[in-house]
Amino acid sequence: MRELGLSLIELLVAMVIGAFLALAGTTYFATTFGAGISIQETTRAQEQFAALTNAVRVEFRRAGYRGNPSQLANYLITTEGSSGVAGDEGTFPAIDISTSGCALMSYARSHSCSGSDNANFAACRDTDGSLLSGTATVLHYRTGLRLQSGVVEAVSTIHPSQYDVVGASASVTSDCSATGGSSAWQPITALTDLYADRLVFTMPGETYFDADAGCEFSVGGCETNASACGDTVSCRIERLYKVEVCAYLGDTDNQCASSPDGRLYAEIFVSPRNNVLISRDYD
């Protein structure tokens, strides 16, 4: 009968082996499962970071689109302000990075007049004020990216300056300082997944071209003074933008201040495919 039982030594050895196996298994599971969770969190953060950097590229690239040639000509005519300068630096700036941590872009989209558009947009308004139903036109949209308390927000709405009927205005606010219920800005990153610490827009370079003569400023006999752009010559400007993005998991502020090492970090250099247009003063 003794052969069927276990001695104390045997029992202790079995318990030690069993405990070791259980400990090893538990540790393996915990470590592996934890690593998997960590990878998932990192992946979510990377996914949001990648979406953010992709949005920067796409929006900057497309900025300044003004439609077909006749719409482009109409744009240059109708945006001529009191200064006589017409084009992208006026009513619908292609890219505006004058506010820190915020970039506003504009470009045209096709639009078919309907509803109460006649109360808002001159292109949809007949001479008697009625709706030009179904009329195809282009409206300028404003898109933008900004950093708000660790969250990157984006906006895409009809440009407020597009409401060109007297008394009309946009129902939402889309400028860089917009807050509250009327703000059109929406988060595109989640604080639980990604803390966006830095979103810095700069313009490291620009080149002026005389649009009439087809030459680059200061090359050969071309115009040399940038102030002539829009004054005595029509010009186009090629601009290069740099967007610096730094983010990480967690919610501790300012971790990117000293070094981006170990963070999700990108320096994006992007040149809009559409040059900035400045039409000369023909007045």
Binding site: F29, T32, G36, I37, Q46
Partner: peptide, 20 residues
């Protein structure tokens, strides 16, 4: 089973990263 579960978690996470 624990190993499979852990491995599956790792695999999904890796697949997500690769897909992204």
């Amino acid at each position: 089973l624990l190993s499979l579960l852990a491995s599956r978690t790792m695999t999904i996470a890796t697949q997500d990263a690769v897909r992204l």
